[in-house]
Design a protein around this nucleic acid. Structure first.
Lengths: 340, 340
DNA sequence: TTGAAAGCGCTAACAC
DNA sequence: GTGTTAGCGCTTTCAA
C-alpha cells in the first residue's frame, strides 16, 4: 500500500541502505543518486513508517500525558490550557503528545504508568497534580524513567519539577483581605491529598497566624475543585454564625460556585462578602463580578515542563531541575466592588 | 533493559514463539508451560514492546486528533470537552489518543495529515471544525484513510460525520427573541470559512426572512470565536443607530465578550439588550447574567465520533454514517432578566 | 504441544 | 559511494 524504502530502491535501482541514507541527508551519497532517489520518493509519495523507525531507534519521539481525572469528563480549564502548552512545545521539538485519562490512584492509572515505564510506550511522561506519597513518582523514579512533574511532592525521591509557590499565592490573598480590613476570613481548600491543596491550606493557616487572626474551624472547608464543590462548601461555611466576611477559594472554579451560591442567598459579592479564587483561568475576568485571584501562567508552565522533559530525554539534565514560580495577585471586583 | 520475550524464553527454557502464544492466550500451549511462562513474565516485569508489536501487526492502536488552532494557545473550552469525550471512548476500546495542534490550512497542518495518511502514524483521525472545500477531507478521502468528522462539508466526497444542526439551533434562538417581541435582531457570525459558521449564518438569514424581519447589514458582524472577537464585533454593531435590541452570537465565548462590552457601555444585558450564545459551555450558566444559548453535547459528540471511527477502523462501517443532532434551546437571563 | 524461520520497515556497522 | 548483513521485538505460518 504505502510506499517503502524497498519500493524506492527497486524503482531507482539501488540498495535500500542507499535510499535510507540519501533521504536521511547523509553526505556519503552521490548527489546524482540522491536526486534520483528524492525524485522517486516524491513521486511515490513516500513517508517513512514510523513504527519501523521507532523500533529500530528504540525511541518513540512521543511524550505521554496521563490526565488524572475523576468521572467521565474534565471540564477543568486547567487541562486544556496545560495541554496547549506542552503540545506546542512538544511539536516545536518534533515530539508527539499522547494523552489519556485515568482516575487518580486507580489500578487503571497504575497500569498505564507501568506500561509507560516498561513498554517503551513513550519516551517520557509529564506528571501533574502531584499527590502526597505519589505512587506515580515513586514508580517512575525507581525505573529511572524520564519525567517532569508540575508540582512538588513529599516523597524521598528527588525529581525534576516546575511548581508554583502556592503558599505564597495564598499569602498574597490573605494579606490583600487583611489590608481591606477583613478579619473574618474563610478558606475552601482543595483536597489535601493533592500537594498543592496541602500547600495552599498551609499557606492560609500560616498567614492567618502571622497576622494574629483566628482560624475558625467551621470556616475552613474543602471542595473537589469544581463549581459544584465550591458551592457546597460555601453553603456549609455560611450556615454558621457569625459569618465570615471574606472567602478564599482554593481555585477559580470553586470560587465561581461560591459566588453563585452567595448570589442565590441574595447577598452581594464584593460588598457583603468578598471572594477570591486561585488560578486566573481565562474566564475569571469575565464572570460577574470579575474574580480576584492568583495568576498562574499555566500555558507557560506547560511549555517549561515539556521543554525540561525533552532536555532530560536527550541527556541534557538541567542545572536547576526545580523551578518554583512566584505567583501574582490579580485584584478584581469580587474582593471589593469599590476597587478599580 | 526492559524484559523481552527472549528473556522469558531463555529463563523458562522454551522458544520465543511459545512464550508469545502463551502470553497471548492461545489454547495450544500446555497449561503447565503457560503457568511457568506467566510466572517468569511477572517476575521479570515483562511488558510487550509496543513498537515491535505495532510494526508486526501493521496497526498502531492509536487515534489522531489534530487540533486546528491559531496562535499559541487554545482557550476554547470546546476542545477540552471534546478531547475528554474522544479520550474516554478511545481508552474504553484500548486505543491511545495522539494530540497535536496546527494552524488551520497551514503547510504544517497539511504535512501532519500527510504523515497520518501515509506514514502509518495513527490508525484513524478525527477531524473537527470542518471548512469550506476542506483540504483535509479531500486528502483523507482520496487515500481512503479512516476518519470521522465533527461537521459536514461542501466537498464532493461522501464521508462519515457527526454534526449538530446549527441552522436549526439559530432558528430556535431567533424565534425565541421574536417570541419576546424583538424585531431588531443582530448576529455575530463565526468565520464563514468554517462550515458551522456558514450554517449558523444561513440559519439566521433564513429564519429572519421566514419571520418577515429585515436583516440590516450593519447588524451582521463576524468574529473569531474568542471573547475579544465578540467584544470587537459588538462594538461595531452597537456603533450604528438605530441599535439592535437583541444580539445572537455564533458561540458562547463571543457572547461573553459581547456581554462584557455591553456592560462597559453601562447598559443592562437582558434588559436594554438581549444576548444569546451557542454551545452551552460549562461556564455559560455561571456568568452573569447567565447565558441563553443552544446546548451542544460536546462530550457526547466526542464519544460518538470516536466510537464511529473505531468501528470504521475495524471494518464495521456504520449503517448510517451521518449523524445530525437536534439542538436544544437553553433559556437563561441574558435574553430576558424577567424570565425565571 | 512446541520450535524454526520468515518478515514487518527501518537503521547502522562494516566491508568493498 | 554503495551494498551486504544483521537486528530492533514481535507475530505468524508451517513443520515436526
Amino acid at each position: 500500500m504505502a510506499a517503502t524504502l524497498k519500493d524506492i530502491a527497486r524503482e531507482v535501482g539501488v540498495s535500500v541502505t542507499t535510499v535510507s541514507r540519501a533521504l536521511a541527508g547523509y553526505s556519503d551519497v552521490a548527489e546524482a543518486t540522491r536526486l534520483r532517489i528524492q525524485t522517486a520518493a516524491a513521486r511515490l509519495g513516500y513517508h517513512p513508517n514510523l513504527q519501523a523507525r521507532r523500533l529500530q531507534k528504540q525511541r518513540t519521539d512521543t511524550l505521554g500525558f496521563i490526565i488524572p481525572t475523576f468521572g467521565p469528563r474534565f471540564s477543568d480549564p486547567f487541562f486544556s490550557e496545560f495541554i496547549a502548552g506542552i503540545g506546542n512545545e512538544a511539536s516545536l521539538h518534533d515530539y508527539d503528545l499522547l494523552v489519556s485519562t485515568h482516575a487518580p490512584d486507580s489500578a487503571d492509572e497504575a497500569e498505564a504508568y507501568q506500561r509507560a515505564a516498561r513498554g517503551r510506550w513513550v519516551d517520557g511522561l509529564i506528571v501533574v497534580r502531584t499527590r502526597q506519597d505519589d505512587a506515580r513518582i515513586k514508580l517512575l523514579s525507581e525505573h529511572s524513567f524520564p519525567f517532569v512533574a508540575f508540582g512538588r511532592s513529599n516523597c524521598e525521591h528527588d525529581f525534576p519539577f516546575v511548581d508554583e509557590d502556592s503558599a505564597e499565592g495564598i499569602r498574597l490573598l490573605v494579606e490583600h483581605f487583611v489590608a481591606l480590613g477583613h478579619t473574618k476570613i474563610a478558606f475552601i481548600a482543595p483536597p489535601s491529598g493533592l500537594m498543592f491543596g496541602h500547600f495552599r491550606r498551609q499557606g492560609f493557616l500560616d498567614t492567618m497566624a502571622a497576622n494574629g487572626l483566628p482560624v475558625v474551624p467551621e470556616w475552613v472547608g474543602e471542595g473537589d475543585m469544581s463549581q459544584r464543590g465550591g458551592a457546597a462548601a460555601a453553603e456549609a461555611l455560611l450556615s454558621h454564625t457569625p459569618r465570615p466576611t471574606a472567602i478564599i477559594c482554593g481555585n477559580d472554579l470553586m470560587a465561581m460556585g461560591t459566588i453563585n451560591y452567595i448570589q442565590q442567598l441574595g447577598l452581594k459579592v464584593g460588598d457583603d462578602i468578598a471572594v477570591a479564587g486561585f488560578d486566573d483561568i481565562p474566564l475569571a475576568a469575565y464572570v460577574s463580578p470579575s474574580l480576584t485571584t492568583i495568576h498562574q501562567p499555566i500555558y507557560e508552565i506547560g511549555r517549561r515542563t515539556c521543554a525540561m522533559l525533552i532536555d532530560i530525554i536527550n541527556g541534557r539534565f538541567p542545572e536547576n531541575p526545580h523551578h518554583l514560580l512566584t505567583p501574582t495577585l490579580i485584584v478584581r471586583k469580587s474582593s471589593c466592588l469599590a476597587i478599580d
